Measured scan of single mutants.
Amino acid sequence: TYYTVKSGDTLNKIAAQYGVSVANLRSWNGISGDLIFVGQKLIVKKG
């Protein structure tokens, strides 16, 4: 599943929405910090 980042989104918010961990979101998307951008597509695997 792909999720497109919207204004106001955070990794924590997206992780909670999908029932996954922030660590997994980072791993699946090659993100090291907490910086995400509006319009960015993130890979999300269902929890």
Rank of each mutant, 00 (worst) to 15 (best):
S32C: 08
D9H: 01
I36N: 02
V20P: 02
Q17V: 11
K41T: 13
D34T: 07
G30P: 06
A23H: 13
V5A: 05
L35H: 10
N29T: 02
T1F: 15
L25M: 06
A16S: 11
T10L: 04
G39R: 03
N12H: 13
T4M: 07
N24F: 08
D9W: 01
F37N: 10
G39M: 04
V22M: 09
V44L: 07
L11Q: 02
Q40C: 05
D9T: 02
Y18D: 01
Q40N: 05
K41C: 08
V38N: 07
L42S: 00
V5R: 00
S7G: 10
W28D: 05
L11S: 01
K6T: 11
T4C: 08
V44K: 02
G39T: 04
K6F: 04
K13Y: 11
G8T: 06
V20I: 11
I43L: 14
G30A: 12
I36R: 02
G47H: 14
V20E: 08
L35D: 14
S32V: 15
K13P: 02
K13I: 11
T10W: 03
G19A: 10
Y18G: 03
F37K: 08
S7R: 10
S27W: 11
A16E: 12
Q17E: 14
L42K: 00
L42Q: 00
Y3I: 09
D9V: 02
V38P: 13
S21G: 06
S7P: 13
S7I: 13
G33T: 09
Y18W: 14
G33L: 08
T10V: 05
Y2D: 07
N12I: 13
S21Y: 04
R26T: 08
V22P: 09
K46M: 15
N12S: 14
I36Y: 04
D34P: 05
V22D: 05
G8C: 05
L11W: 04
V44Y: 04
T10A: 05
S7T: 13
Y3K: 02
K6P: 01
W28I: 06
L25Y: 00
V22Q: 06
A23D: 14
R26S: 07
T4A: 06
A23R: 07
